[in-house]
Design a protein around this nucleic acid. Structure first.
Lengths: 221, 221
DNA sequence: TCTACATTTCTTGTATACAAGAGGGTTGAC
DNA sequence: GTCAACCCTCTTGTATACAAGAAATGTAGA
């Protein structure tokens, strides 16, 4: 067949899930996917196996694959872990950052500020991701970086909802500034605390997130 | 075929890797694995895809699968992350543990003590794992629990090496006791500190040193 | 009309056949 | 003797055929 769909098929299906085209709980029929992507069932199955291995898809024996539905509590748990991973990366970045890391972080921050001043939510969403990636890189722990990126990716849909909240963008930006101050000052503890509370969905934010999820559920039903 | 090899094949191959039967860098020939496990290539390939998704196996297009070889720095990075995840679980356990968690932790600790007093390294190795699992459960964060278990599993071979060190077992046991004290006292900070240093072979300083050294190497090259 | 059972159909799981690329070895030329 | 080109083989990637289990539907009996 078209080949060159080597391991790209996995990414295609993954994107369909992460962009919300496939909803949580949706059944992933092998032949449907096969016809859709113009391949046979074999590569589809291999892609689904990979996605099940990273927890995006659930495969029940003889009962097919479905898009995993984390549920509010599980999403909260993931954010809790994400907060700690980010905090860890920030602490390491504070202790280990080099000149090029500093440059990259400041650049990313500037772009965030730009997007916020333009009130461009979509662009801020993108630059926000780049900002956090810059911190991962500055941690100089490649494994941590991979873990952060993977989890960040999985939480992407919910993070996008979060940003829709009123004033979230300007609050987020000022938090970013505090985080950068701490990292560049080499203050690992401050970076930890600030990143943790930046990510953590506590109080209002968690309520907002849950409320939005409920709304989504209602819309889906 | 024998069926019931549903997704067990993945675990079998994974075990072969984690127990060291398949060495890092080894080529994983599909037909060899197929004949060995009495199945066709299809389920073998599916298992390999899953293992590649979780980073245990590397698949290069048209060039086959090999057991991934992390290398010393990567292993160190993984331990660094593991330490933080364990510390996080311990802190949550300190804040959230219920009565049944306390029972489970104390039981696991008792079994560790028993194994240590019998000087039974293999049994201590096993009970040590159970002890840490009890802490994961007590964190009451299912996602964190899964992440910890997965990483713990991946680090198993290296941890085994660690335990062979002289006196490691008794040192480990007394550390366990301090950790349990902190958790049951609800002292999240103490639990964090103690678990972090329990996992990390050396303190953060060493990690920072390594990271900086690597940076120097790269600049020189 | 409802329920229990059988059949039928549909989907998954596995095996095998086929295609295509990568690597190695041989042969030939210089 | 060395190097390069070509062919052969071996392995991977994909498609399809086949087997087996699960869900759905239809039928018969109460």
């Amino acid at each position: 067949m078209t080949t060159s769909t080597h391991h790209k098929l996995r990414d295609q299906i993954e994107n369909c899930i992460l962009t919300g085209e496939f909803h949580p709980g949706d059944r992933l029929d092998e032949v449907q996917l096969a016809t859709r992507f113009q391949v046979s069932r074999t590569p589809v199955r291999e892609a689904l196996m990979q996605l099940s291995a990273i927890g995006l898809v659930e495969i029940k024996p003889r009962r097919g694959a479905t898009v995993v539905d984390p549920g509010p509590e599980r999403i909260f748990e993931m954010f809790e872990v994400m907060a700690e991973l980010e905090a860890m990366a920030g602490a390491m970045a504070a202790r280990r950052h080099q000149e090029q890391d500093q440059i990259a972080i400041l650049e990313a921050l500037a772009k965030c500020r730009d997007a916020a001043e333009s009130n461009d939510t979509d662009r801020y969403y993108y630059e926000n991701e780049a900002f956090h990636h810059a911190i991962y890189v500055a941690s100089h722990n490649g494994f941590l970086q991979e873990q952060c990126i993977a989890l960040h990716r999985r939480l992407r849909p919910y993070r996008r909802l979060q940003l829709r909240v009123r004033n979230r963008m300007s609050v987020s930006l000022s938090e970013h500034e505090g985080i950068v101050d701490a990292i560049l000052a080499g203050d690992a503890d401050a970076a930890t605390v600030r990143l943790r509370s930046h990510i953590a969905v506590q109080g209002d934010r968690f309520g907002d997130l849950i409320a939005n999820l409920r709304q989504l559920d209602r819309r889906r039903a």
